[in-house]
Simulated scan of single mutants.
Amino acid sequence: MSGRVVVGYHGGATGRDALAFGTQWAVTSGDTMVVVTVHPGAAPAGLARVDAEWAAYERSAAQDLIDEAKGLVDPSIGAEYHRVDAGSAAHGLSDLVEPDSDDRSLLVLGSRRDRKMRRTFPGSTAERLLHGTAAPVVVVPWGYGHVEKKRLERVAVAFVDTPDGQVAFAHAVRIAQHLGASLTVLTVVPDTRVVPGLGESRQFSSEQRKGYQASLDAVLATAPAGLAVSGRVLDGPVVDALGDLSLDDYDLLVVGSRSYGPVRRVLLGGVSSRVVRHAKVPVVVAPRGD
Rank of each mutant, 00 (worst) to 15 (best):
S2Y: 15
G3E: 02
R4D: 06
V6P: 00
V6H: 00
G12R: 14
R16Y: 11
L19I: 08
Q24P: 10
V27Y: 11
G30D: 00
D31H: 12
T37A: 06
V38S: 01
G41F: 07
G41A: 08
A42R: 14
P44S: 04
A45F: 14
A48M: 12
R49W: 15
V50G: 07
D51E: 08
D51K: 05
A55D: 08
R59C: 08
A61M: 12
L65C: 03
I66M: 05
D67R: 12
E68H: 11
A69P: 01
L72G: 09
V73S: 01
P75A: 08
S76N: 11
S76K: 13
V84K: 09
D85E: 14
S88F: 06
S88K: 05
G92S: 09
L93F: 11
S94F: 08
D95Q: 14
E98F: 12
E98M: 13
D102P: 10
D102Q: 13
D102E: 13
S105D: 12
V108T: 04
S111K: 02
R112T: 12
R115F: 15
M117K: 15
P122Q: 02
G123M: 00
T125V: 09
T125F: 04
A126Q: 01
E127D: 09
R128K: 14
L130C: 00
L130A: 00
A135N: 01
P136I: 03
V137W: 00
V138N: 03
V139C: 04
V140P: 01
P141K: 03
G143C: 06
G145C: 07
V147L: 11
V147A: 10
V155W: 03
A156F: 10
F159L: 03
T162M: 02
P163I: 08
Q166H: 15
V167Q: 09
A172L: 00
V173R: 05
I175D: 06
A176D: 02
A176M: 04
Q177M: 09
Q177S: 09
G180S: 02
G180T: 02
T184A: 09
L186C: 06
P196H: 02
L198Y: 15
G199V: 04
F204P: 02
F204D: 04
S205P: 10
S205R: 15
S206W: 14
E207T: 09
Q208K: 10
R209Y: 02
G211L: 07
A214P: 03
V219Y: 06
A228C: 14
L234R: 05
L234S: 05
P237S: 02
V238A: 05
V239E: 05
D240Y: 09
D240F: 09
D240P: 06
S246P: 05
D249Y: 08
V254I: 06
G256T: 02
V263H: 14
L268K: 00
G269I: 01
G270K: 11
G270M: 10
V276R: 00
H278S: 14
V285G: 00
G289N: 07
